[in-house]
């Protein structure tokens, strides 16, 4: 009896979680696929996917989504690396800076969008500061459909501000796994900080950098509320289209098509990353 319960126990403890995840992730994933390719009558059809492909916003949506990823992710990695390396130098009070840098971790992309709206709106703080410093002579309009560059810049800044925290936390955790001896050894051999970072720290940090890159890219595909907050419907992105097709037009099929597109892109990107970066299973696990 004792032996049997002992053997079954771990599985019994894990089962509820796994069933829950299956019910709320696996099954809906299949249903999303079916919604996109199956008509209400039960027939399989590509009509919804075709309608999505000719939708006015379709091309803009996927282009903008990719554009934002290309701009945001590298910026975040650099910013986060700077924060992580600073924190890891363990200067006096570094824990407080770690806390401050991590605060945006708890901010939704909607709230982040609104925070930066206060900055970028026409009568906002950016214009106040710029005019105060004499950089511009009158308030400029950053967030309008005529100023695509302004919209993109605002979104990139807001997203970099918000989601850098996740990358930073991953990197700090990764840096802590590197034994202090490595840093001291590098010092002993006369490497200065830059050389130490380039030749000792970064190679050792590679696994963390890779997982940060993957996680951030996957999440960047879901960017939507920050875009809606700053650009409204002037800048279509995939997730926002999915939202709007369901919330405004009540069309689950088209919404699911966009969701499926998102899922497909996510999977392709992850796969490409794993291929290109040559990740081994052991590294993903971290």
């Amino acid at each position: 009896m004792w032996a049997r319960t002992e053997e079954i126990l771990p599985y019994a403890l894990l089962l509820p979680s796994l069933v829950f995840l299956a019910l709320l992730i696996l099954i809906p994933m299949v249903q999303a696929l079916l919604l996109a390719i199956q008509a209400d009558s039960g027939e399989f059809t590509t009509a919804y996917l075709q309608r999505m492909a000719v939708d006015v916003n379709f091309n803009d949506a996927w282009r903008n989504t990719l554009l934002l990823i290309v701009l945001i992710v590298p910026l975040q990695i650099v910013l986060a690396l700077a924060m992580a390396l600073l924190v890891n130098s363990r200067f006096k009070g570094h824990q407080w800076f770690l806390y401050v840098y991590a605060i945006p971790l708890a901010i939704s992309d909607l709230a982040a969008g609104i925070l930066w709206l206060a900055v970028f709106t026409e009568r906002g703080y950016l214009n106040t500061a710029a005019q105060g410093l004499g950089i511009v002579d009158q308030a400029k309009v950053y967030l309008s459909f005529e100023n695509f560059g302004g919209l993109v810049a605002a979104i990139v800044i807001a997203e970099s501000w918000r989601a850098t925290a996740i990358v930073m936390v991953i990197l700090v955790a990764g840096l802590q796994l590197i034994p202090r001896d490595f840093f001291e050894a590098a010092d002993l051999f006369g490497a200065n900080r830059l050389r130490r970072t380039l030749y000792v720290v970064l190679p050792l940090l590679r696994p963390s950098l890779q997982s940060a890159l993957i996680i951030r890219t996957i999440f960047a595909f879901q960017t939507f509320a920050v875009v809606l907050a700053l650009a409204g419907r002037n800048m279509p992105v995939i997730a926002a289209e999915a939202y709007s097709w369901y919330a405004n037009n009540r069309d689950a099929h088209l919404a699911a098509s966009y969701a499926l597109l998102l899922l497909g892109l996510t999977i392709v990107f992850t796969f490409v990353y794993l291929r290109v970066l040559g990740l081994r299973e052991a590294e993903v696990k971290r």
């Binding site: 249903q31 999303a32 919604l35 996680i215 969701a259 696990k285």
Partner: peptide, 27 residues
């Protein structure tokens, strides 16, 4: 199967769960 479970948990951490909202709304 411990490793497999860990991998499943990690993968679902990264899974874009929001996407599932639409089929879940229908359900």
């Amino acid at each position: 199967g411990r490793q497999a479970v860990q991998l499943v948990i990690l993968a679902s951490k990264m899974f874009p769960v929001a996407i599932l909202s639409i089929p879940l709304a229908v359900a």
